[in-house]
Each structure stands twice: as structure tokens, then as C-alpha cells.
């Protein structure tokens, strides 16, 4: 078990170190998130109540697309110099490889989201901190779901020439339940309403989504990486 955890951490730190050296994907993702938030802030009047009502949806659409830019690089990075061959031939399980990559992606996507969130508050004149910890919990859960499915599809599409297009096409339909839950909860929390018995079904759904797709991905990743 300790060896497994060590392998996960080795892969995670390798991916983070490689990304932080080049900053290719994180710069692209962050710039994209900021530009889209800025453009939408011109399109909608921040003083309108309806703007606040759609804020959860808007935020998660930005997070999903910005996150895709990071997730696309996850396995594509391994194609340069045929590094994927070296990882596949190393004596580590597909699950360790997958979880290491998913954790690195999770940290990077969360970083982009946490930078974009205060700017969202400024651009849309929204006080989003009134339910801060609950909002952080929803972001953490939904981002893990998005990262797990995104990392899995990044592995699945790594050898496809149009992988940048294929990843969102495959990933977003699967993500609909998680995004729907995250949007509903985020809208309520940004409006200052805590999670109650009325809407905690969305929270349970987010947890269920994370558990289910993490388990499925861990089981299937070896088959995905070592094709027939």
C-alpha cells in the first residue's frame, strides 16, 4: 500500500514539476478563464438579479472549459519523446499512474479556479464569500469529478490526432450530472443560501459521481493504456 502511495506521489510531483517549469497549460487555462469571465461581464449587467441567478452556471462553464485546456495536456505530455512507453513499461500499476496524473491535474485545475473565483466576484459585483466553506466543498467535489473523467478521457484520446476536440466532446456529456449539481449548489451558495435538506441531494449526487467515476477509471485505465 505504501509503495502504491509513493508511486502516485512520484507521478503527481513529476507532472506538477514539468508543468510548473513550462507553465504552458496553466497559463493558457488561466488566461482563457479570465478572458471569458471578462467578456461575459460585458454581456450581462452585473446589477441585474438574473445575472446573480445564472452565476453558478456561468462559473462552472468557465471552469469546465478552462479545466479542459489543462486536462488535454495530461497524457499528451507523455507523447513527446515516447515517455508514455517508459511509464507503461515501469513496474507501476495503471491505477497509480492514473491517480498520480489525476491528482496533479486536480491541483492545477483548483489553482485556476481559486484565482478565477475572486475575479468573478469583482467582475459581477457578487459577494460570494458568505457561504465560503460550503462553496469550497462544492468546488472541491465537482473539480475532482471533472478531473477524474477528464484524465481518463485524456488517456483514451491520447493517440487521436484531434484529441483537443475529442476530449470535451467525450467528457462533457458524462459530466452533465456533476456540472448540474455544481451549478445548482454554487448559485445557491453565491446567493448566500446554505445547503439544506432541500438541495443536499445535489451534494450527495456529486459525492456519488466522484466515487463511481474514480472507481471505474481506476479499474479500466490499464485496459485503456495497453490496447489490444
Amino acid at each position: 500500500m505504501m509503495a502504491f502511495v509513493r508511486q502516485v506521489l512520484v507521478i503527481m510531483s513529476k507532472d506538477l514539476r514539468a508543468e510548473l517549469r513550462t507553465k504552458e497549460a496553466i497559463n493558457a487555462s488561466l488566461s482563457f478563464a479570465l478572458v471569458v469571465l471578462l467578456l461575459f461581464s460585458f454581456a450581462f449587467d452585473p446589477s441585474e438579479e438574473t445575472t446573480r441567478e445564472i452565476s453558478g452556471g456561468l462559473l462552472w462553464i468557465v471552469f469546465a472549459f478552462a479545466g479542459t485546456l489543462l486536462l488535454n495536456r495530461s497524457f499528451a505530455r507523455e507523447l513527446e519523446n515516447d515517455c508514455l512507453d517508459a511509464l507503461i513499461s515501469a513496474p507501476i500499476s495503471g491505477a497509480a499512474l492514473f491517480l498520480g496524473k489525476a491528482l496533479a491535474n486536480y491541483i492545477l485545475v483548483l489553482a485556476v479556479e481559486l484565482i478565477a473565483l475572486p475575479l468573478f466576484g469583482v467582475f459581477y459585483n457578487v459577494r460570494w464569500t458568505s457561504q465560503f466553506w460550503q462553496l469550497m466543498m462544492v468546488i472541491a467535489l465537482a473539480t475532482w469529478g471533472m478531473t477524474v473523467t477528464g484524465t481518463m478521457f485524456s488517456a483514451l484520446t491520447v493517440n487521436i490526432r484531434l484529441r483537443e476536440v475529442m476530449l470535451p466532446i467525450l467528457n462533457f456529456p458524462i459530466l452533465i450530472p456533476a456540472l448540474l449539481g455544481a451549478m445548482q449548489l454554487t448559485s445557491a451558495l453565491v446567493a448566500g443560501k446554505p445547503i439544506t435538506a432541500d438541495n443536499d441531494a445535489w451534494l450527495k449526487m456529486l459525492i456519488g459521481f466522484d466515487v463511481m467515476y474514480t472507481a471505474v477509471s481506476v479499474v479500466l485505465v490499464e485496459t485503456v493504456l495497453v490496447g489490444g
Binding site: A18, E80, N81, D82, D85, A86
Partner: peptide, 13 residues
């Protein structure tokens, strides 16, 4: 141990 067509090491490291 495998040596393929690529060098299988990371440029950023």
C-alpha cells in the same frame, strides 16, 4: 529495459 524510437525521458526535467 526498453529503448524505443523515442528517448522516453522528459525535456522539462
Amino acid at each position: 529495459g526498453f529503448i524505443g524510437h523515442g528517448i522516453s525521458v522528459y525535456d522539462e526535467l
